[in-house]
């Protein structure tokens, strides 16, 4: 089976007008506008197989959305190639569009003044679904996204969470084989986020659709994606299992100790980096290789009442990665 996405050396330059300062600059720009070119995506290559759910990470402006726009056919790359479901996306062929869905966070395709059901009906026609397919798909989505009574209410009366779930349903009625999700949980409360995540995972498993997902919400990435692709300033920084990424960044473990008597902070520092300490608590980062030795020393030389050895939080790592980018 061909991959859902095969991206090779994809590159995109943007032209943006240069605004010179002052009134004179403004007048000059009126007659002779100058442009500067900036590279938003720089030689990115990767493959995603059918049924894979991959996280696409990077700081703001790293080039994630530009990449998604090229893969959905909205933008033509400056150079490089991509095949999505075996087609060149920017040719915008209907056969390709019928199997694709692009969901951009809060940007809803729903008709504001009318119940969401009307938009669903329109999408049924746009994607050429038969009545039976439409019914089956709709019933399933309504049940999974808990949309029942919201379908007959004008969209403008729905809460943000309800609207985003209805938007997701509208985007999935035609059961796309490739789903590009840009910030699917942005602005939602924790309970809603969880619901949307469960739904995305369920859709991926049930339909075997390939999903590429961007998110600034660490929980989305950690709970959904085994594989992540990280880009920084348009370049591919990492492509592989989330665990490996974590291991690469998590070169240390965390020791948390509670003491039965006050201890000397200076002596603790001999065991590892003290990130937090007071009279009866301490948190240390120790290199992985020395974890056992440090823990033993701690138990031997200090009045330890309780000791906890933990891995670094994935959230932390991904956050650091963003921080670094």
């Amino acid at each position: 089976m061909p991959p859902a996405l095969a991206v090779d050396a994809l590159t995109k330059d943007y032209l943006s007008p240069i605004k010179e300062p002052g009134l004179l600059g403004g007048l000059r720009a009126l007659v002779n506008r100058r442009y500067k070119s900036s590279r938003a995506v720089d030689g990115v290559s990767f493959r995603i197989e059918e049924g894979e759910l991959v996280g696409f990470l990077g700081a703001n402006g790293a080039g994630k959305t530009t990449t998604l726009k090229m893969l959905s056919g909205l933008l033509t790359p400056t150079s490089g190639t991509a095949l999505a479901l075996g087609r060149v996306p920017w040719k915008r062929e209907p056969e390709f569009q019928r199997r694709l869905s692009l969901v951009m966070g809060q940007r809803s395709q729903l008709w504001w003044e009318l119940p969401a059901y009307e938009t669903f009906r329109l999408n049924k026609e746009i994607y050429g679904l038969r009545e039976r397919e439409f019914r089956a798909s709709l019933d399933e989505l309504v049940a999974m996204l808990d949309l029942g009574e919201h379908l007959s209410v004008p969209v403008k009366k729905l809460s943000l969470g309800e609207r985003m779930r209805a938007g997701l349903a509208a985007a999935l009625l035609h059961r796309p084989r490739l789903l590009l999700l840009d910030e699917p949980t942005i602005g939602l409360d924790v309970v809603m986020q969880k619901k949307v995540r469960e739904f995305v995972r369920g859709y991926n498993r049930r339909e075997g659709a390939a999903i590429l997902l961007t998110s600034h919400n660490m929980a989305d990435v950690v709970e959904l994606c085994r594989r992540v692709i990280v880009i920084e300033r348009g370049r591919l920084l990492y492509d592989g299992p989330l665990e490996t990424l974590v291991a690469r960044f998590a070169d240390h473990k965390i020791l948390r100790a509670r003491f039965s008597a006050p201890v000397d902070r200076a002596r603790l520092a001999e065991l590892g980096a003290v990130v937090d300490a007071d009279a009866d608590h301490a948190t240390l980062h120790v290199p992985r290789a020395r974890t056992a030795a440090s823990a033993a020393a701690l138990l031997r030389d200090f009045p330890v009442a309780d000791l906890d050895v933990a891995d670094v939080d994935i959230d932390d790592i991904v956050r650091r990665l963003f921080g670094a980018a």
């Binding site: 909205l74 569009q97 692009l102 940007r107 746009i126």
Partner: peptide
């Protein structure tokens, strides 16, 4: 606003 995108990716 870029909302046009949502139409351009549909077979329409």
């Amino acid at each position: 606003s870029g909302r046009i995108s949502s139409y351009l990716v549909r077979p329409l």
